[in-house]
Nucleic acid binder design. Structure first.
Lengths: 349, 349
DNA sequence: GCCACGACTGTATGCGTATGCACAACCCGG
DNA sequence: CCGGGTTGTGCATACGCATACAGTCGTGGC
């Protein structure tokens, strides 16, 4: 709280001191600036003795090469953008963390971009921020963002999305196995009246999960009643409002499938507010298996896949694409499994 | 799934096309490059007519000024680093989101830095990434990071931390009021045996909250028994293991205060696993009031403050410091209130 | 013993933008 | 009608780094 001690430096808040450049290192090492550049990048054309001298000088001065200068010089940066909708959404935390880590390991940086309603800005971010590539974790099917990017020749990878119009690397999950296991279990328990709170209709992830559910139900001779399905965003509120709407009727579904775990968490909490017991009165299922879903207070039955690996792979793919623009696109698909916990049980009666 | 349609572009993955520069715009608008630069930055020395022409040309070409070039030219970037420990920690999601948004609004970018165990890298990140300033949301009291940064003249703001040695802007919360309200309530309900799972001993936030608790307890003639207090990180695991340890005894505390909400969530879930009822068997309190804490399934009684505003202010402060290095430091403090929910009730017996 | 060649290192230059300065055009008052 | 000021624009250059190219050695082969 108290300031007290007279600090020994200038009082006025530090003027930002001049940067230490490769030229400073060059002067100290007694070589030219380009030699420093080459030595520190371990160019074989520089003698070992010189490298040693340069390295010592660099350490002595606390020199670190300036990424700005380098980016300008080589014509591209080492910064990849990650486009998301909502940074507060739990889901994204678990893609940002591994992706950030992997990119750092590869010598790249992660730049967060939140997609505002308009589509133009995203493409401009790229030039403005000098991005070398973009991971799209949010685009709706008909979005113009990917075509804009492709038009500008910006390397691109889809995260949990695909597109017919723009061919590119992608990482996606195949919901089928998990959904099949889940429904086999649930239907075996006696669930017939099944509802759903799906994600956005205009995203390939949303569509894909919805299609998987409908297909598997069909195999069992079941179908979703139109009045038992809701659509919305992949967020808490969608699940929260969605479940209230589904239960606000005389004959609600006995099992509600949610577009993802965050939606399911919204639904779970809505049930708690309504005094509706889960799974005694309704069963609820999620998709993603976020860490929160395994909490003792939650115990959400859900469809799991390796989100960490998927996020790291996305990082690897965008880097590979940036460094080898002409390589064949890679489109790994991650399998899913059903994780049975405590939110699905046999229906009443 | 199928590739099908022959795409009309080159098959080999796009070569990244040449960037559109201010010179291109200049050519199209029939002016010189510097004029473009001035016009787009709305320099009053450029005539309105010229500005108009330049703007049109820029739009026509889809030009966006290149941040790299600009940064190199002006000698500093518009990128501020945020140093955190763990990107998966819920808490940080709620500081990153508002901070990112505010920085963007101010024309700056957010760069995430996870503090690895070593302290040296952070300082090097600054030069390497060309950061113009840093927000430290993680530093332990004795860390060398702030002094290193200050030595290099890097603008700095402490987030939820303070330091005696390095004077700088900061945003901090004052736990006192919230803690006092909480304890008045709890002690009024009959709690006497009170335990705590505090955060790290070597952070000012941890210390400060601990001190506040001890001081207020003292006012009531109470004290923490040494065996009833645990220390750890501000994470789920600390709360989870901490509560198990505290309850693994014949005479456990009736109320456990947690260093923050994430710790409290860990404790809450540990209780659920142990079959210990909250608040019937133990009461539990948090600190931060994260969105999750107000879920119907959680209903955590906690100490609240305006984390959004605090995060935005941190963004504003670092920008102000970067732009006016000699201004007097600002050290806003955010007040706290107790939010009574469902995890604190009168103890048994 | 001379030339060709390899191994290093220095020189010159470019990346995209911003800015100090020079310069041109114009306006207005005297 | 001319000079000084004002306004608008171009020119030259700098930022830090990387790289093509030129140069300088020294060495080995014949």
């Amino acid at each position: 709280m108290e300031a007290g001690v007279a600090d020994m430096l200038a009082p006025g808040g530090g003027r930002t001191s001049r940067m230490i450049t490769s030229r400073d290192v060059a002067r100290l090492a007694g070589v030219s600036q380009p030699t420093v550049s080459r030595a520190l990048r371990d160019d074989p054309k520089v003698s070992e003795a010189t490298k040693q001298r340069v390295r010592e000088a660099a350490v002595a001065l606390g020199y670190a090469p300036n990424a700005i200068g380098r980016a300008l010089s080589v014509g591209r940066s080492t910064r990849v953008g990650l486009v998301v909708t909502d940074l507060e959404n739990q889901f994204y935390a678990h893609v940002i963390a591994p992706m950030h880590h992997e990119l750092e390991r590869l010598g790249y940086e992660l730049v967060l971009i939140t997609e505002s309603s308009e589509s133009a800005p995203v493409a401009e971010h790229v030039t403005a921020h000098g991005l070398c590539g973009v991971v799209l974790a949010t685009t709706t099917v008909e979005s113009l963002v990917p075509v804009r990017l492709r038009d500008r020749g910006v390397p691109l990878v889809y995260f949990n999305r695909t597109s017919q119009s723009v061919q590119a690397d992608s990482v996606t999950v195949d919901p089928e196995n998990g959904v099949r296991e889940l429904l086999r279990d649930a239907i075996g328990m006696g669930h017939r009246r099944i509802g759903a709170i799906f994600g956005p209709r205009n995203t390939s992830t949303g569509e894909q999960r919805e299609n998987a559910v409908r297909a598997v139900l069909d195999e069992h001779g079941l179908a979703l009643a139109h009045r038992d399905v809701r659509h919305g965003s992949f967020d808490f509120r969608t699940g929260h409002e969605g479940l209230r709407a589904l239960l606000d009727r005389s004959d609600p579904p006995t099992l509600v499938l949610c577009g993802n775990d965050v939606v399911a968490l919204g639904a779970l909490n809505a049930a708690a507010e309504l005094g509706v017991a889960v799974p005694a009165d309704v069963s609820i299922a999620g998709f993603d298996d976020l860490p929160t879903s395994s909490w003792a207070l939650i115990r959400l039955s859900t469809v799991a896949y390796d989100l960490d690996e998927m996020s790291r792979d996305a990082a690897r793919l965008i880097v590979a694409r940036v460094e080898h623009p002409d390589a064949a696109p890679a489109n790994p698909v991650y399998p899913t499994q059903y994780v049975a916990r405590a939110t699905i049980a046999a229906p009443r009666g």
